[in-house]
Design a protein around this nucleic acid. Structure first.
Length: 366
DNA sequence: ATCCCGTACG
DNA sequence: CGTACGGGAT
């Protein structure tokens, strides 16, 4: 390291970085202890999720499941309900499975061996390194989006941070630099620096504790580094979202797994090529679904929801039944419930917007 | 409209 | 190694 980069001294770098972290670390609830369980829970939540967004969910979850034993015994539907709105719902199911395995295979202790940690569902290279370094003091570098940004700028690397090889390269570099005495603090400090100072746009180099080491700053390249290849175009989709009502009760259905939003509850959906009102088709669909005729259709405003890989446009439609539905109540994938009961179901964000939108919210108030 | 953020699976 | 998988901030 120091031979090929004479300007760079890991010792001095770590000293500046860790001193900055001591004075600037945010007081996050999972930092109040060294126990692995809060670290584990928070790191799963922080996958693809920023701290501010994860915080309220962390509080709900740690409160409901204070130990790994509580989590291992959790009801999956209840966990998904607490998770609803956060996205990447596979995380919640993996979290539950992992807790079960930690109890069953590892006597309630998080495995301190990297291979064993990686064998747990939902634990990949980032999360394993985070937990093992922070809670067990192991010198394993974490490579998340923040770290990629900080390190590529530090060494002026123009590699595409979307690619796996780049992540491995950065991990290799950090392996030479990581502070063996305080690997957890080193990792957290690097991520905190990326989140608070070395930000994607307009990094605050003036207050950066390691600006003196930064080649991107020296060469005026913080605008071009990190380089990230353009994302693939989103597939476009269009749905009618069918709010089926009979006597103040609404039909909810649970999505099959695996697949998008699997295990989550939603209003029945009619996929369509274009959002053209075809009343006949919609009525037929609802009748096939419920075995009851539709007395009235009301069209709500067009809404949209952007996923990483899908651009969804959808239109809520209130379908009122003129006779009692035949849908069986014992079907575990369909339920008729009152609006006040929606909060008991894990309803994903796109359909939750229908409950919130001012034009459609009235459909649910009796 | 464009950016941010890790893991599973084939 | 490429693709599927959500939601929020700016």
């Amino acid at each position: 390291m120091s031979k090929s980069r004479p300007h760079f001294s890991p010792e001095r770098f770590n000293r500046e970085l860790l001193r900055w972290f001591e004075g600037n670390a945010r007081a996050l609830p999972w930092r109040a202890t060294n126990h692995w369980y809060p670290v584990f829970l928070s790191e799963i939540l922080l996958q693809q999720t920023q701290v501010e967004q994860a915080l309220p969910y962390y509080r709900k979850l740690i409160d409901r499941y204070p130990t790994v034993y509580d989590l291992a015994q959790a009801d999956e539907q209840e966990l998904l309900t607490l998770w609803a709105g956060l996205g990447y719902y596979a995380r919640a199911r993996h979290l539950l499975k992992a807790a079960g395995e930690i109890v069953a295979r590892f006597h309630g202790q998080f495995p301190s061996d990297l291979k064993e940690a990686l064998s747990l569902p939902g634990i990949g290279p980032y999360t394993a390194a985070a937990i093992l370094s922070i809670a067990f003091g192991q010198p394993l570098p974490v490579v998340d989006g923040n770290v990629l940004r900080v390190v590529t700028r530090l060494f002026a690397l123009r590699d595409d941070i979307r690619q796996t090889v780049t992540k491995n390269k950065v991990r290799g570099l950090l392996h030479e630099i990581i502070d063996d005495k305080a690997p957890g603090a080193f990792n957290e400090a690097l991520m905190e620096l990326g989140a608070l100072v070395c930000t994607p746009q307009n990094p605050d180099c003036q207050s950066c504790p390691v600006a003196g080491f930064c080649l991107a700053k020296e060469r005026g390249l913080t605008g071009e580094i990190p380089f990230k290849s353009p994302p693939r175009e989103r597939r476009r989709a269009a749905h009618f979202v069918l709010v089926v009502r009979f006597r103040a009760k609404f039909l909810l259905v649970r999505r099959d797994r695996p697949g998008l939003l699997s295990g989550m509850w939603e209003f029945p959906v009619l996929e369509t090529r274009r959002l053209i009102h075809s009343n006949q088709k919609i009525k037929q669909h609802v009748q096939a679904l419920t075995g009851a005729a539709v007395s009235k259709l009301t069209f709500g405003p067009e809404l949209q929801h952007i996923y990483s890989h899908i651009h969804l446009r959808y239109q809520p439609v209130l379908a009122e039944l003129e006779q009692a539905p035949r849908t069986t109540l014992t079907d575990r994938k369909a339920v008729w419930c009152r609006a006040e009961e929606f909060e008991r179901y894990a309803i994903h964000r796109a359909h939750h917007k229908v409950l919130e939108h001012e034009e459609t919210a009235a459909w649910f108030s009796s």
